[in-house]
Design a protein around this nucleic acid. Structure first.
Lengths: 349, 349
DNA sequence: TTTTTTTGTCCCGCGTAAGCCAAAAAATAA
DNA sequence: TTATTTTTTGGCTTACGCGGGACAAAAAAA
């Protein structure tokens, strides 16, 4: 594995330091002769911080300076050339994360290298990154709602139980769907709870409930309790699916699937089908998390990777309900190019 | 250039952090299940420091732990494997520096990668490293004495004048020697002073002075002043030469050179010839720094690189007067193997 | 049951980063 | 040429953060 990738995993703050010094060198290179104040303004750091860094860079002989301002030494120019390459390497994705974060207007974007479509290992990486983020962000007392799906199933599987107990309750955000038990929201909730060292509750009901059956099911006190808990969840973790795939998994016949596509549905999340602008095209009725609940959830995390899911990710994130988006490089780059073209299209009109 | 080498130049402290975490992971790997206290003892760090690092490593999912102690997660094992390689890379020389420092009983050893014998660029690197060290260590009020030689001449040449003024006086440690003006101690002192932003004084006298001429020369008040200053120097920077080369440069005839070699001389520094144990074999009389002055100098820096000079470096350092030794990888590795064999020899007796 | 080891918490003190200000030098204008 | 302005650098003081040590609680081992 790449040394920079390794360092990014084991000590990202070390790379931050390298990057900071790189930025200073680059600024000096372009603005020489320049003083601390000008650098500080340009990099939006305090003058004192810049001073500290400048002092060590000067000590090492990369910067030379007099009262007219400082500039790069030949050593400084050489190391700047070397650094450029490594920063680009380590920043390929970090930078993409930043860009997407801004353009998608979400709180955070996490991108793992690779493409899930091409390499199944990337999907594991995606799951691992999600697990890592989850562990960072979950606090005692949290109620975590999770959906089903292959991606989320891998998140649960890749969750190393670190032995610590957490006061977290994991609940399925939706009911049961399809035949495969390992990708059921219930199974995932249970496994995730185990990995987190928390507890879980199960929702024993089908995902798509006929409206006149609702009252009958809710009559069951155990089910009602779980539903109450689900609607109180303060963290929602859900996968992102393509509309087509999810529709057929839900057992819709070809005709209905066709109609969905014609209506513009490209993405699916927790039972709702969205078009590229984030508008709802179709909704399956459910006992779990509903659209009107989303506004009350402080943290919604969406996971989905692969070039093929770029449209789906775009549609789901465009709803405005997504806080954190976790995807892979393939999906992210495709997504970015979709956005670029969209923008051009808009400008063209 | 290697990313690790670049980082080592631009932010060595970042690599220290990586190494610290690597050491912790390795310790856990071998001692699992293990607690903070045991790790702290093993690594000779405070328990608090270990705890801080352990917390972030656990946060990142590399360590998992319960009350029985902690162990590596699968992620942790993977990253440990990756890290091993990079640590080995970055530590090849750093570790060698440490080893040599201990075995040679000096305050500091600096090794640049490569071999001056094979690649002349390495000699420039050696000079640059020396210049960098010098700039770090010199304080206002210091008097720096320098010898001549090709290596020191390159140090002076590679000294980027960083514009800052320093209250430092540079003096030649010895008189003039040979014909080439650029490698004279006088020239080097002048150029070095320019680079340091300090002042310099010249010693207008030959290196090898006939004893009955001394009084005549010292009668010159200007020369006497400089000599006084030289004897007051608190930093001495000198090159290391092989006995043979230096003897012929001093214009000794073949017979005398042969005699020197027969007497066991392998290294030369500031006019003195040493055998491998650091004993003086021959001394040229000089007006500048004498052996009896060395004890009074708080910082003596010796520079010499290349496999061919390993014996010379060994002899000069063995005098016990050397505080800092700057050499290259070729010289250092050869030196280390010489020391290994020497030890075996002693053990064999 | 006792001992040993683990983890987590609390408080203290040092170190260092940050902000502020003054002096000095260069650029600019008169 | 001289004066003013705009930079620059360097020093001083403060305060926040982080490491250090001790301690209690809890769990595993003996």
């Amino acid at each position: 594995m790449n040394p920079i990738t390794v360092m990014n995993e084991i000590a990202p703050e070390a790379l931050d330091l390298v990057e900071q010094r790189y930025l200073i060198l680059r600024t000096v290179y372009f603005m020489a002769p320049v003083g601390r104040r000008a650098i500080a303004q340009r990099l939006e750091k305090s003058e004192r911080t810049i001073r500290k860094e400048v002092d060590v860079l000067r000590e090492r002989g990369f910067l030379i300076g007099n009262y007219a301002g400082m500039s790069l030494s030949s050593d400084g120019e050489r190391i700047l050339t070397d650094l450029r390459e490594y920063i680009r390497q380590m920043h390929g994705l970090t930078h993409l994360e930043q860009e997407l974060k801004e353009v998608l207007k979400v709180k955070k974007v996490i991108i793992v290298p690779g493409d899930s479509d091409q390499d199944m290992v990337v999907k594991q990486d995606l799951a691992k990154a999600t697990a890592r983020y989850l562990r960072q962000v979950l606090k005692n007392g949290d109620v975590l709602a999770v959906t089903g799906g292959t991606t989320l199933s891998q998140v649960a599987a890749s969750f190393p139980s670190d032995g610590t107990k957490r006061d977290v309750i994991v609940v399925p955000a939706r009911g049961g769907l399809g035949e495969d038990v390992t990708i059921q929201a219930n199974s995932i909730a249970a496994k995730l709870a185990q990995g987190l060292g928390g507890s879980y509750r199960l929702l024993h009901a089908p995902d798509n409930v006929d409206s006149n059956l609702v009252s009958t099911i809710v009559a069951d006190p155990q089910i009602r309790d779980v539903i109450t808990l689900v609607r109180r969840a303060n963290v929602l973790l859900h996968g992102i699916g393509t509309a087509e795939e999810m529709a057929s998994r839900r057992g819709l016949d070809e005709e209905h699937v066709m109609q969905l596509i014609i209506d513009g549905a490209v993405g699916e999340a927790f039972g709702y089908y969205f078009d590229p602008k984030g508008q709802i095209v179709y909704a399956t009725s459910s006992l779990g998390v509903r659209l009107e609940d989303l506004g009350k959830i402080p943290l919604i995390v969406a996971v989905g990777g692969g070039k093929s899911k770029a449209w789906a990710v775009l549609s789901v994130v465009s709803t405005g309900y997504c806080d954190v988006c976790i995807t892979d490089e393939g999906g992210a780059r495709r997504l970015m190019s979709l956005l670029k073209h969209k923008e051009e299209h808009v400008n063209g009109n």
